[in-house]
Write a protein that binds this DNA or RNA. Sequence first.
DNA 1: TCAAACTCATACATCAATGTTCAAGTTAAG
DNA 2: CTTAACTTGAACATTGATGTATGAGTTTGA
Lengths: 198, 198
Amino acid sequence: MADGTTASGRRPRGARPGAAPRPRDTLRPPGLRLYSSRPGVSVAEVAEAAGIGRVTLYGHFPSRTELAKALMDRAFEETEAAWRDVDTTGPAGDTLERVLREQWHLMERNRNLRDNIIGDVSPQWLRARHDPILKRIEDLITRGQDDGAFRTDLPLSWMLTALYSLVHAAADEITAGRLTTEQAPEILVASLRSLYRP
Amino acid sequence: MADGTTASGRRPRGARPGAAPRPRDTLRPPGLRLYSSRPGVSVAEVAEAAGIGRVTLYGHFPSRTELAKALMDRAFEETEAAWRDVDTTGPAGDTLERVLREQWHLMERNRNLRDNIIGDVSPQWLRARHDPILKRIEDLITRGQDDGAFRTDLPLSWMLTALYSLVHAAADEITAGRLTTEQAPEILVASLRSLYRP
DNA sequence: TCAAACTCATACATCAATGTTCAAGTTAAG
DNA sequence: CTTAACTTGAACATTGATGTATGAGTTTGA
């Protein structure tokens, strides 16, 4: 205690004693953005995008795999946080449209991240972390089906996959310059309304 | 002429003079299948899937890039051939459903191949070869819109992208074991009918 | 001022993939 | 049988990415 170090760990309790201006948490978002943007990104590229040295990055995450896991955990937390802000009281159709408009960008990042860390983590680990993210939407679709708002002639898994697939496609269209950021959510909502209607 | 060799090239006109049992053309399909199945495939894996040695493969295609190009050309030819068999005389909606049922597997391979050779060939080359493949469907959608069979409130590019995106998704669902090969085209047709209806 | 915590460029070992070379084989036309 | 065309495994050089080690510098709490 007297030496400023806690008994449990190496790091003091409060603010860290001293450091260059980049702690662990301000580092993550830019790395995530790059990791989620292109397949086959190297750790060097992620570090550069995050504005830090490659060695420093390895100081935080002992391996590429651990980096990928941390980014996926982050995505999971972001999704949880986003859902806490969603009003889910109304009809399922309305809720879905709200979620799409508010979260389609986050959903896109989740999906890209998942696509890009396949091969970096075990399939089991990936399922365990990614499935809960999908589950929120899945539950919403089920509720809509029970209410008669959504069709029931297609498998639930397909309706979920189709949704993510179209979100992904919309993001690609923006990248390709064939859709604007404003158009994308409207087109997504219109498409899924047609696709989900009984 | 008397020596059995043509004047123009090194290869005689008819059957090749003698060789191990694997000429260039029986080699391509298995390679294509693998190349289209997984991102980041190595040339060694492609060769193994094709049942030939890696060195032999390099004998046919001087580089990974040239291999990718040859496979894309092959896909293009396959698509052209498939379209020659399609009856396009009826209503656009019926034609689209026929095309989906008959070609969805080919469309899936085209898309996967495209995804996997990004980075191996220049974007310009890729566009030049891939766009004509898309054009057939695009023309069909346009015809349906002119006939009033398909909706016109969504961009043409989006309707095309959504179609390929769902085809891709269906293939993934089969891989994941959540759809059967028999279900897939039916679900695709049902989904696109809803999505394209005015 | 002192020292702990942190950053970072350089350098290094390792590994996997690409593409080449070579020295053997195998096949079938003549 | 002879020989040209082809195949192949093994070996090699090169390149790029991963992960580690080191040593020097920076920040900030005490």
